[in-house]
Design a protein around this nucleic acid. Structure first.
Lengths: 235, 235
DNA sequence: CGGGTAATTGAATCTCGTCAAGCTGGGTGG
DNA sequence: CCACCCAGCTTGACGAGATTCAATTACCCG
């Protein structure tokens, strides 16, 4: 949050309290099972995680990837049981906290509450972009758009913009996120490479011309062009 | 909201203030254009609306259908320009209000703010269900799941549960929501009918056995099994 | 240096899209 | 009151894109 607004001392303290408890989780660990009782949310501090649902036939749809600083499990807020599974894609550090802490935050620090609301709407916009991607674009565009999204999210964090980033996903995971099979993901990656839109090397992907790939995949960067001028003043 | 919690007089008044202004819109009218400046949100009072995005090639992805009582345009909260288009599917009545009204609401009535947050998370869960539907299920299941969702949403409003509801959508619109062509939607509707899962007559659809259709389409009712016990007390 | 997971590639198959043609029903104007 | 019109629905034939199945090959970890 501190990247977008200047936090007061009180607000900073309130956010720190939420991240009090720490927990190490190893790659592959599930910290929240779909359909099981949920009382906690998590902040991701280090690593990379994902949320997904499993269908009765065993197929998996990955809903979202999480990077450090993001809140995981918000979708469970309104429900008794978790609507999705949270699983670590790498060794991670997470901070679990109670649902009620969010409601305390909204009472004591309305500006942070409004900020949370804005974030969940940005997340919604990203989700709807993926919906359009799955519903109305080719396999090639879907894979390319996913690479761009990962690139933008990582760049928003570390500031570097040289177009290279560690993939951190198997082709099967890319397939489960884009609604394709791992075999077809492989072919599409190859095609993107042959078209000169990306290069691959040792688990890293390089996007030579971000704008060109964005054009080829109809991708929009939802982490740009924000408007938070309507936020209430800090208390 | 009054269906889920008991509102105080003050809370009721605050919500009424939001719905002060009224506007009639005729079928087909666009009240918010994607990529154009947005300062207002809307409450839908009567009718049925949808939000969608258009891709550069002209294809359309319908993101969501709106029914009376729901807030439209929340996704625009964090942005200067609207990420989606809002269009009336029937003659409607809407109540426009300023973005800042939401932030005032969150300051003055934290419980309503938390409620809004819960709603947006429920909406998120519905969206992720659609994502799984588009990414990992057959055309038949997608169409069936959409019918079930419309049925559940209408039932949540009017209470009737006899399985019959007015469709109010063309097959092309169903296709744009499910990522299919109108031609294939037609075939899938026919197939669902031949399988005895639905019947159609004069623009109305009847779902004989809701549970059976839910099984065939992997559909979950996200408007059931809510947990709002963590909400803060009313101010 | 194994052993297992992930990536790669080819061939056959199937689902869904495309194109094209006819049909139907409700609204409109002569 | 009827003929027409037009959007939406229906159906068939064909093709493209993605899946499935199967078999190697490359890579990472201990």
């Amino acid at each position: 949050m501190s990247g977008l607004i200047t936090l007061t001392t009180d607000e900073h303290a309130a956010l720190d309290r939420i991240e009090e408890r720490r927990r190490q989780v190893r790659k592959g660990t599930v910290i929240q099972h779909s359909e099981e009782r949920v009382t906690e949310l998590f902040v991701l501090r280090e690593g990379m995680m994902m949320s997904y649902v499993l269908l009765p036939d065993g197929s998996r749809q990955i809903l979202r990837f999480y990077f450090p600083g993001e809140i995981m499990g918000m979708a469970g807020m309104g429900y008794r049981n978790a609507p999705e599974t949270l699983c670590a894609l790498a060794d991670c550090v997470v901070c679990p906290f109670e649902k009620a802490a969010v409601s305390r935050l909204m009472v004591d620090h309305p500006r942070l509450g409004a900020m949370l609301m804005a974030f969940s709407q940005i997340e919604r916009a990203v989700l709807t972009d993926r919906l359009a991607s799955l519903g109305r674009t080719s396999a090639r565009a879907r894979v390319g758009a996913l690479l761009l999204e990962l690139h933008n999210r990582l760049r928003a964090r570390d500031g570097r913009g040289n177009g290279t980033f560690p993939l951190g996903l198997t082709q099967e995971e890319i397939g489960d996120a884009t609604g394709l099979t791992s075999v077809h993901v492989n072919r599409m990656l190859r095609q993107l490479e042959e078209d000169g839109l990306i290069t691959r090397e040792a688990g890293h992907v390089t996007i030579g011309d971000v704008a060109a790939l964005a054009r080829a995949t109809h991708h929009v960067d939802r982490y740009a062009a924000l408007d938070l001028s309507w936020l209430p003043p800090a208390r």
